[in-house]
Design a binder for these strands. Structure first.
Length: 617
DNA sequence: CCCCCCCC
């Protein structure tokens, strides 16, 4: 097999101009590793693959459309692959191959590592500047390296040609625009774009075009619009401001394919993106946009569906894609925004899928009013926001899209399932239990108990949020729960009037209270111990039963009660916590409240630890 | 340079 390898090709790619890249190098797969992305973000998995030519090895990232090869165990350790499309990005001083296309040479099977391949020099060592070793974990967030020269022009322009790679050629399309009019005939895949390359043209379909938005704030005012662009490799958002609105807004039409070149490539701000790309484009004065004569061969949509069941495990505020069968259509309603006191039209619909879950999705504005899809249509949503109202619900954003009965495999499968069995089925909701929650879409930062104390979390004006990996070491037996008003969302403590229970808030009498947890638990980790307050939704998870049931035990069956307490103790969890000052008998103290908790995911935790250990070296 | 996306 060794003779099939493109021996020495990786060094050529690492050191030379893209025009000298070996066209279709054959390489051996040394390792395939899943990048530890946030499992609650809804984003697809990313794989890092180490490739060897037997003399050298190199890091690569697999474009997500190749993920299935990993899932099918075709692309695995020891396999041989032939790259058919790739580009080179620079992350943290090191070149990374971005593999956009490859063939697994299955006829060669899997083999032990051939030769004794060595690592390649970092970009900086090629520039005679010794650099510390690369932290592999950094691949997880390839935000453009802050420690990297911001002026990429100087990097590519002023250095010697041997260290200054020009953009790699990708697919040659003789039918593309003529270089004479300023375009390159070389079409780049969107996934290969990066701030370090500026001579490219993409051929992409506009899958979403915003209205023109005007803004004014302290920093100034202006107008903007943005489009989502899609090709077979990936998607990216492009935004035009002010003059570029005038120049390009009317040229770009949703659904059509364009050649686009000479944009600025910026780092996408993670919290604002709803397309899967590290970068985003900004139209500039000399940006060129030209409608493609051939509108075919560019995908119309790209989805990364999360099943309705899985929506329960996605963080609040994540932006995800879902597909489901339309089950019910609510009426158009008018609401008034609390923030702006403006009125909005909305409509709630419910969709179901073969995981047996239903999901409410809120549509807004014109789309809500004009919604006309018949019941039992398949609806595919791209870029909808996850809310945690009553468990889980979804809400469209202006950047979201909805397609009715899209001609994609998932849609046909869903239709088949619905006609076969789904129509008569009952569906589960994501109930109002505590679930993975987060502040602004991310999980709060992990702290040890020693960190929480040393950093004085909760002692400032605003609450602090953190997550904690710990074990329940004690549950206070006093005041485990209180008798609450059974009216939905009241939760007020009610009082036994002798035979009936009175709620002062509702001004009503009830036959029985509904007990709610207000537990105090001690949680320990390897650095200390902390008292945490737990309310009903989290209490139910810890105790595996309702506060009513536990209260019943406490009153009538001491043994059963003690057993429940014992079983709940010494369980490890990841606690999401809020630390907040309050006044108690004239003294200021910090109260720690568990806002939600999740079961230990040992695999994830192990990964975190490995990354932590590697980062420490 | 926006980044709001609303309500129960």
């Amino acid at each position: 097999m060794a003779e099939r390898l493109s021996v020495g090709s990786l060094r050529v790619i690492n050191t030379s101009d893209s025009s000298s890249y070996p066209p279709n190098p054959v390489l051996q797969v040394l390792t395939v590793k899943e990048l530890n992305s946030n499992p609650t973000s809804g984003a697809p998995k990313r794989y890092r693959v180490v490739l060897s030519d037997s003399i050298n090895y190199a890091q690569s990232m697999l474009s997500t459309q190749l993920n299935h090869l990993v899932a099918e165990n075709k692309l695995a350790k020891g396999a041989f692959v032939q790259l058919t499309q790739f580009t080179v990005n620079i992350m943290k001083e090191r070149k990374i191959l971005i593999v956009l296309g490859l063939d697994v040479l299955t006829e060669l099977g899997f083999m032990e590592k051939i030769g004794n391949p060595a690592g390649l020099e970092t970009v900086d060592s090629l520039r005679q500047q010794p650099q510390p070793p690369v932290n592999e974990g950094s691949l997880n967030q390839p935000s453009a390296p802050a420690n990297y020269p911001a002026n990429t022009g100087s990097f590519y322009g002023n250095n010697s040609p041997s260290t200054a790679p020009a953009p790699p050629p990708m697919v040659k399309r003789p039918s593309g625009p003529n270089p004479a009019n300023g375009y390159s005939t070389i079409i780049y895949p969107i996934e290969g774009l990066s701030p370090y390359q500026n001579k490219w043209t993409i051929r992409a379909r506009v899958t979403n075009k915003s209205d023109i938005k005007h803004w004014h704030n302290q920093r100034g005012e202006g107008k903007l619009f943005s489009v989502n662009l899609l090709d077979e490799s990936g998607e990216i958002r492009a935004t035009g401001f002010n003059d570029q609105v005038d120049a390009f807004y009317d040229i770009l039409h949703e659904g059509q394919v364009y050649y686009i070149s000479r944009c600025r490539v910026n780092i996408a701000k993670k919290q604002f993106t709803n397309v899967q790309n590290e970068y985003e484009l900004m139209f500039e004065r000399d940006t060129e946009i030209k409608k493609a004569e051939d509108q075919s061969a560019v995908p119309v949509a790209r989805f990364s569906f999360v099943s309705l069941q899985e929506v329960g495990n996605v963080a609040k505020d994540a932006v995800i894609d879902v597909i489901g069968v339309l089950q019910s259509i609510g009426p158009v309603q008018q609401i008034t925004s609390r923030a702006t006191s403006r009125g909005f039209d909305k409509r709630d619909i419910t969709v179901v899928d073969q995981t047996g879950f239903e999901m409410r999705i809120t549509l807004w504005g014109k789309l809500a009013i004009e919604f006309s899809a018949p019941e039992e249509s398949v609806l595919a949503f791209k870029g909808v926001k996850v809310n945690d109202f009553q468990g889980r619900s979804l809400s469209m954003l202006t950047s979201s899209t909805m397609s009715t009965d899209p001609d994609i495999q998932e849609s046909h499968l869903l239709k088949g399932w619905y006609d076969g069995q789904g129509r008569g089925q009952d569906f589960a909701k994501h109930s109002n239990n505590a679930s993975i929650s987060s502040v602004s879409g991310r999980s709060a930062e992990r702290k040890t108990i020693a960190d929480v104390q040393a950093e004085h979390l909760g002692m400032s004006e605003t609450p602090d949020y953190f997550s904690l990996k710990g074990t329940i070491v004690y549950i206070r037996k006093k005041n485990v729960s209180y008798p609450a008003c059974p009216a939905p969302d009241c939760n007020k403590k009610i009082f036994d009037q002798g035979g009936s229970w009175r709620c002062e808030k509702c001004n009503k009498e009830y036959d029985a209270p509904q007990y709610r947890y207000i537990m105090t638990i001690a949680v320990g980790d390897h650095t200390g111990q902390l008292w945490l307050n737990v309310f009903d939704d989290v209490g139910k998870i810890i105790m595996h039963k309702s506060a009513d049931e536990l209260n019943d035990y406490q009153e009538n069956d001491e043994n059963a009660f003690m057993n429940c307490m014992a079983e709940a103790c010494y369980m490890p969890y990841i606690f999401q916590c809020r630390a907040k000052q309050d006044n108690f008998k004239g003294e200021t103290r910090v109260r720690y409240t568990v806002t939600s908790l999740s079961q230990m995911n040992w695999q994830e935790e192990s990964k975190k630890l490995i990354d932590y250990i590697q980062g420490a070296n």
